[in-house]
């Protein structure tokens, strides 16, 4: 978060409201495995509310940078299973910001179709250099 204002030690009411929603969802994930997504863009949160929420959730062990149709950032917060996801769009503006309460955010998974395609490509790559060597005269 670029715009973190100095810690005042006081959480804003809206940040606390979202935090309590996250707590309920995280308890549900732990008990039943049910996932939740909270769209932060759809809530009337000020930059200050977002900064406070960020401070309350803290930093976790995982940070991922994605390059997929523009940049995205996925990071685990200080609470396992609570992920802060930011998708950037035009001009690196935040197009979507959400909290995902899940074991692994869906966007990090490799899709089976992509894996199958990659397997074919890699198999070709393994055989292709051999074919090249036979055709290309050494000099």
């Amino acid at each position: 978060m670029n715009s973190v204002s100095p810690m005042t030690g006081e959480a804003t009411p809206l940040a606390l409201a979202v935090l309590s929603e996250i707590a309920t969802a995280l308890a549900r994930l732990a008990e039943t495995g049910e996932e939740t997504t909270i769209d932060l863009k759809s809530l009337p949160l000020s930059p200050d509310d977002l900064a406070r929420l960020g401070e309350l959730l803290g930093e976790g062990e995982v940070r991922c940078d994605l390059e997929v149709a523009g940049r995205s950032e996925v990071r685990e917060t200080g609470f396992s299973g609570v992920w802060w996801i930011r998708h950037l769009g035009l001009g690196d503006e935040v197009a979507l910001e959400e909290i995902a309460i899940t074991f692994v955010p869906e966007i990090l998974h490799a899709h089976p179709d992509d894996v199958a395609r990659a397997a074919r490509r890699l198999a070709e790559a393994v055989t292709a250099p051999l074919a090249d060597e036979e055709e290309t005269p050494r000099g």
């Binding site: 769209d39 997929v68 149709a69 899709h111 992509d114």
Partner: peptide, 22 residues
């Protein structure tokens, strides 16, 4: 060379704009 992650990202983005359930 664009993976299925692009669809996940695009759908989340539209879902947010259109207030669709996750």
């Amino acid at each position: 060379g664009i993976s299925r992650r692009a669809f996940v990202k695009y759908a989340s983005y539209l879902g947010s704009l259109m207030a669709l359930a996750p």
